[in-house]
C-alpha cells in the first residue's frame, strides 16, 4: 500500500492553495503534515479524501487515482476532519451505526464492526451517551472510530489534536501508534509539533502551497543543524576535561554546565565517534555521550516565513 501525491496543484482563482506538491508514503508510516495556517494542508488532505478536485496533478492510493476513480479511492481512505461530530439527539452508538450503514455494512457484520471499533477506541463505556454531551477528547475518539469503520488502509487526519487536553492527546498518540503498527498509512497535520515529532516517521513542511522541506524524521532533524551539539557527562575530572576539550581540533565551543559539558563540534558523525574514542583512550570515565538533535519546532521556525495566502 502506497500513497503517492504527484505534482498536485489547486488554484482558487489567482490563489495557489497547493502548488506542485509531490510526496509519497507507505503502510505503517505516520507522516506529519506541517505548515502555518493557510499553507495548503487542509486543501491537500481534502483532495486526498476525494472531497476536492485538484486543478492539476493527481494522488494515487494503492494505484487508485482520487481524481479518476473517487468511488474506489473512498474505500481506501478514512478522513478525520478538523471539526468534531455535532449531531444532536444522537448517541455515540447511533452515530457509528449511521456511518456503518452509509459505508454499506450490513446485518451482523455491521454490529461486529461497530463493537470492535468502539472497543479499539475505548468508546464502549460511553456508547449510549449523546454526542453533544461528550468532551472534545471523546468526540475526537468518536471521529476516529467513524473513520475506521470501513477499515481503510490510509488515514488522513486534519488537526486531530487541536483543543485536546494532555491526557486526550496522549491517548490519541497511543491509538495512532497502534494503528501504525497495524500497517495503516497515516497522514496527520498538527500545530503541536512536539507531539508530531514523537509519533511521526516522516514529515512534510509546507508553506504557501509549496513543500519547503520533507523527509524521514531523523534526516530532517539532522540535516537542519549547521553544527553538532554533543553532551558529555563524566564521573569525575569535569573541569580538566573541559580545558582539554577547548584545546582539541573541531571543537568550536565547550561549556561546563553542572556535571555536564556541552560541545559544539564542527564535523561529521565520524568526527564525533573519533572524539569519543580519543576521550576513552585518555582515561576519562564517560557516563554519557549524547548527540543533541534539533527539534521539529526549531526546524519549522527556521524554514517557514509565516506567509499566509
Amino acid at each position: 500500500m502506497k500513497v503517492e501525491v504527484v505534482n498536485l496543484k489547486k488554484h482558487f482563482g489567482a490563489t495557489r492553495a497547493v502548488d506542485d506538491v509531490s510526496f509519497s508514503f507507505s503502510s505503517g508510516q505516520v507522516v506529519g503534515f506541517v505548515g502555518p495556517n493557510g499553507a495548503g494542508k487542509t486543501t491537500t488532505m481534502r483532495i486526498l479524501s476525494t472531497l476536492d478536485e485538484p486543478s492539476d496533478g493527481d494522488a494515487m492510493i494503492d494505484g487508485v487515482s482520487v481524481v479518476e476513480e473517487p468511488e474506489r479511492a473512498r474505500h481506501l481512505v478514512g478522513y478525520v476532519p478538523d471539526s468534531l461530530p455535532t449531531h444532536r439527539d444522537m448517541s455515540v452508538h447511533e452515530y457509528l451505526d449511521f456511518f456503518a450503514r452509509a459505508y454499506d455494512l450490513k446485518g451482523e457484520r455491521r454490529e461486529q464492526v461497530i463493537e470492535s471499533v468502539e472497543e479499539f477506541t475505548n468508546l464502549t463505556g460511553i456508547r449510549e451517551k449523546m454526542l453533544n454531551a461528550l468532551s472534545k477528547g471523546m468526540k475526537q475518539r468518536v471521529s476516529l472510530a467513524r473513520a475506521l469503520l470501513h477499515d481503510p488502509p490510509v488515514l488522513i487526519m486534519d488537526e486531530p489534536a487541536a483543543g485536546l487536553d494532555p491526557r486526550a492527546r496522549i491517548e490519541l498518540r497511543e491509538l495512532l501508534r497502534v494503528l501504525s503498527s497495524h500497517g495503516k498509512a497515516i497522514l496527520i497535520s498538527s500545530h503541536i509539533l512536539t507531539e508530531l515529532a514523537e509519533i511521526c516517521h516522516a514529515a512534510v513542511i509546507i508553506e504557501h502551497g509549496k513543500i519547503l522541506m520533507a523527509g524521514a524524521m531523523g534526516d530532517l532533524l539532522m540535516s537542519s543543524v549547521p553544527r553538532r551539539t554533543v553532551l558529555i557527562r563524566v564521573l569525575e575530572q569535569q573541569e580538566e576535561l573541559h580545558r582539554e576539550l577547548l584545546q582539541m581540533p573541531h571543537i568550536e565551543n565547550a561549556r561546563l554546565i553542572g556535571s555536564e559539558i556541552a560541545l559544539e563540534v564542527n564535523g561529521t558523525e565520524e568526527t564525533c565517534c573519533d572524539l569519543l574514542v580519543s576521550l576513552i583512550q585518555r582515561g576519562y570515565r564517560i557516563l554519557e555521550f549524547k548527540q543533541q538533535r534539533a527539534n521539529l519546532e526549531e526546524i519549522f521556525m527556521n524554514v517557514t516565513k509565516g506567509v499566509v495566502q
Binding site: F25, M60, I211
Partner: peptide, 23 residues
C-alpha cells in the same frame, strides 16, 4: 504516462521497517 511520473516524485519515504534495518 502520469503513472510513470510518480517515480520522479521529489519526496518518498521508506517504510519504517526498511528504515530501521538501514539504521
Amino acid at each position: 504516462s502520469v503513472m510513470a511520473q510518480i517515480h520522479d516524485a521529489n519526496i518518498a519515504f521508506e517504510p519504517p521497517g526498511r528504515q530501521e534495518r538501514q539504521d
